[in-house]
Write a protein that binds this DNA or RNA. Sequence first.
DNA 1: ATTTTATGAAACCAAATAGTTTCGTTTTTG
DNA 2: CAAAAACGAAACTATTTGGTTTCATAAAAT
Lengths: 123, 123
Amino acid sequence: MAALSQKHDVFHAIADPTRRKLLQLLADGEWSVTAISKQFPISRTAVSKHLRILAEAGLVQKRKTGRETRYRLDPNPLCELKQWLSFYEQFWENKLAMLQHYVEIEKHVAEVTDMNKYKKNKQ
Amino acid sequence: MAALSQKHDVFHAIADPTRRKLLQLLADGEWSVTAISKQFPISRTAVSKHLRILAEAGLVQKRKTGRETRYRLDPNPLCELKQWLSFYEQFWENKLAMLQHYVEIEKHVAEVTDMNKYKKNKQ
DNA sequence: ATTTTATGAAACCAAATAGTTTCGTTTTTG
DNA sequence: CAAAAACGAAACTATTTGGTTTCATAAAAT
């Protein structure tokens, strides 16, 4: 269900370093294609194609405003990645003491997950 | 040390669905190339090449025993992925609304850093 | 000693990737 | 209206990818 076998999934989308940089940039807000392109050493068309791939993976959303097309981050598909990762965390959490910081996050997640059992709808 | 810019990084390694299945299989223990190949519809040589890519990314380790080469999971490089992901977790509050508690810290950082350009994208 | 098994290297191939340049369309600006 | 700006589609190219088959080598089994 989460693993819809579309042409461009999240794993593929984030495999490219340029696309990861695009995501990082778009975390900052909404940008037009030209504005984005100025931050990269490749052509506008190349950037545009990367954005299309990110959009197909659901990682960005586009909005037309006049002659501009603006893109913004949509991080939701990264949940699939997180789920995938979570499976492997059991294998490393005992090994790596150096990840103190991120292990802390895990603790939080674990606590929250436990809280699910008696959660009150807060929305 | 984790972020060595080698030819096959973690992001690239896990982009391929076959390689993800390999990792999943190897989570189960140590397997010889032939044993692994029997679980896949592709040739042994193809599996072998995938394993090499995984090994270059540090995600599996190999051990020769007699004429066999056995591979096993090494999840440590996934930490880089986790770190990458952790940056974006602040943005997907819909899915992990319950993490608000923790995310508050991150939001503070984000606001201070990006005060000028911060835009709220409600949907 | 011979054969079988396990494996990687090499050569090859089709398709996908990441990039380019060119061109047409739409919207804004002068 | 005419020119410029913003963009995507299309055609083209070089490289990478994921797969194959073939072959050589080392270890195990007969």
